[in-house]
Amino acid sequence: MKQVKTADITALVEQLCIEACCVITEDINNKFKSCLQTETSPLGKEILGTLIENARIAREERSPMCQDTGMTVVFVRMGQNVQITGGFIEDAINQGVRQGYEKGYLRKSVVKDPIHRENTKDNTPAVIHYEIVPDDVFHITVSPKGFGSENKSALRMLTPSEGVEGVKRFVLDTVSAAGGNPCPPIIVGVGIGGTMERAALLSKKALLRPLDTPNPDPSLASLEAELLTEINKLGIGPAGFGGITTALGVNILTYATHIAGLPVSVNIGCHATRHAEGGL
């Protein structure tokens, strides 16, 4: 049985928090550059150029790309043959978040209670999702989620008769209603199927797929391409000032669902859609 020490988990999470907030992923940076060539609005081009420059400064200075360094979402993929030693895994992850946000000069944006709203001052607790898999892998993805985009996300329980047309309409309506608020050009994560909470989780996980990796399911790949084209016709553009670059990508994940239901969740990611991953 493989052993993973909690001290190593803490160190990994600390490092991933800082990296995710300061270093743009290569797929997004490449997409900025290709969109700069295709964008037709002069102001839109100006904004895309600014985002490329912002990403460069953040990377070189190790400063957060955005001041909203988010609520820390952590995905743990853990083999069933892994044993955690040295303490409770959840404490180790939260300690990593605490250290990362302090040492990385990241903003602490988490309040202890949604009603009374007192800041916890260390960005904990994280939102942690565990997935148990075979073998002995131990893998962590840290995805700090800003709320400019999170606030514009939505979920709807469609009926089966609404079908794929209903799904498309809901995705487009959600992006249209979000307008310039979620810091476009956005990445659109779509979760279809499962139950209510499974659809929501799928839509968040969908944001993690690199933009240059096609959906392995050809019919979903074509639905993604169609939705991206339609979204980019909405005219929202970079920062919402108009143009043809409203979204950089649409990523869909699906799951089995019930004969009576068609849950659809849309999780909107800002132009940085930050994430960093590593294993032990």
Binding site: I47, T50, L51, E53, N54, I57, A58, E61, S63, P64, M65, C66, Q67, D68, G148, G179, G180, N181, C183, A239, G240, F241, C270, H271, A272
Partner: peptide
Amino acid sequence: GKGTRGARVIDAMKQYTGVYFAAIGGAAAL
């Protein structure tokens, strides 16, 4: 700020000669 504003804010801006600028969302290091 960033993103659009409600009708009451816009009415007040018209009445009192105000302006709302948008800075570039997410370009915070710059």
